[in-house]
Design a protein around this nucleic acid. Structure first.
Lengths: 250, 250
DNA sequence: AATACTTAGTGTAATTCGTACACTTTCAAA
DNA sequence: TTTGAAAGTGTACGAATTACACTAAGTATT
């Protein structure tokens, strides 16, 4: 059986990385999508996750970090693998096939993609810094109904994993600026979880966990009682982890 | 940037699937490993996860199901993807490189592997039915300290994912025979979670969840009070899922 | 200056869930 | 008859979860 490896090395599958880049604008959960050139039946199907084939001298981490750097100008951003998708008939949409014929040497080769999700501060993202030859924009996650290839499946899978992960680890802080109010933090959790939370219960739990430090700054110029700003306390979180604590469900 | 896709299609990475096949012998959690031929410094490094390159006309699911069928003779067994591993220097152990030179046409090509874990009833596994040209055996998971390539990392990652998943979904029943005692079920949870559980608390919760049906059969010929046999009640579990229930932590 | 609007900020009570803990029963083996 | 081994069973305490409503402090409007 192992001999089959010897007689079938010729046309190996291509491997790409695709990235679900989440952001948060203090209102809704956003995803960064690229708009492809060409004729597409509707806007949805011309939108795709940013991604690219991986180079021969790269490993997976290098490839996904390169794609992110090219697109957002950012290094060292939070990344987690969603998984590998696809195979021989992953690309079934006819317009996608045509598009691939226009840009790839071997358009019929199977492409297996390894997908990641990442969490970025929208304010850090500089569209102008992008070296991507395509336009990229933020879209509300809950308004996306379809995407190119199987990217909608990847988006949904990534969102489900994010929802699960965030109740074990406070990874949502990667979406927030350094200083934030408790109201903003709660809206971030609500945007990711897709449901509203009780303000008092949320505050009691986050303060009890003790991973926030109050600053002496407040909001100003807001047409309501100004809120206090807090920071994420990395050191407190680390010592919390060492106790085995992993309950961040709200 | 997209143009790079055109000028770099020549040596694409190979993609393999590897499988962490878990079993349970009513005492400990087991994993099915293959023993490679050749000279290796010790027994550990000659042991590897079963796996193979994927064919050009297969997708990932077909490939992993094929590998499982070839090795175990079993179809339709529980499978969950762990993720994609590796890249250009995934294979760093010298003995592994030598072994690959002996069996592959392009031993230096990068291999990215997509790993899965599966849960099988040990009693269903028929070693004789295997068409693999290598010997395969069950090993106690907690006695494995190292494996070929990066397979030990894959095993640990898979075990961690299994531990997390089993507290949301009762997937452990895939390891059990149709009829089992509550003691056997508890030992299965203990083997996966790696810690002992309180008998009364375990029983109270599993009975409250109401996903077991009592049979009218009992153990016999056992040197202690014979235990009642239970079955997993799929229908009850399905209606439970519809309520949104997903707390299977013990 | 008064009013309206908006979000910040705060406590309590009821319920459910998690956890710790010990003795009797029933079989086979000695 | 005794011994050993696992089955089977209930209670009490503390922690966590949930539901719920009013006052405070700003800006904007009139």
């Amino acid at each position: 059986m192992r001999r089959k490896e010897i007689i079938r090395p010729d046309l190996n599958p291509n491997v790409s990385v695709d990235c679900v880049i989440f952001g948060f604008d203090f209102q809704q959960l956003k995803v960064l999508l690229i708009e492809r050139e060409g004729d597409f039946p509707d806007e949805k199907s011309r939108l795709a996750l940013p991604g690219n084939l991986i180079y021969d001298d790269e490993n997976l981490n290098m490839a996904v970090n390169r794609v992110l750097k090219e697109l957002t100008g950012l290094d060292n951003i939070f990344l987690k693998q969603i998984g590998a998708f696809g195979g021989v008939d992953r690309i079934s949409k006819e317009t996608d096939k045509e598009w691939l014929r226009s840009i790839r040497a071997h358009p019929d080769a199977r492409v297996i993609t390894v997908a990641y999700y990442s969490l970025v501060r929208i304010s850090d993202y500089l569209p102008a810094a992008s070296s991507f030859a395509v336009t990229a924009n933020w879209y509300n996650v809950d308004e996306i109904k379809d995407l190119a290839f199987d990217h909608y499946t990847i988006l949904k899978t990534g969102l489900n994993q994010l929802r699960r992960e965030i109740s074990f680890r406070p990874i949502g802080f990667n979406l927030m600026p350094e200083k934030f109010t408790l109201g903003q933090l709660q809206r971030m959790y609500e945007a990711i979880l897709g449901r509203s939370l009780d303000k008092r219960n949320f505050r009691r739990k986050i303060m009890k966990i003790n991973i926030l430090s109050a600053t002496d700054e407040k909001e100003y110029d807001v047409p309501h009682k100004p809120a206090q700003y807090f920071k994420f306390n990395e050191a407190n979180y680390k010592s919390l982890v060492e106790t085995g604590f992993d309950n961040f469900s709200f």
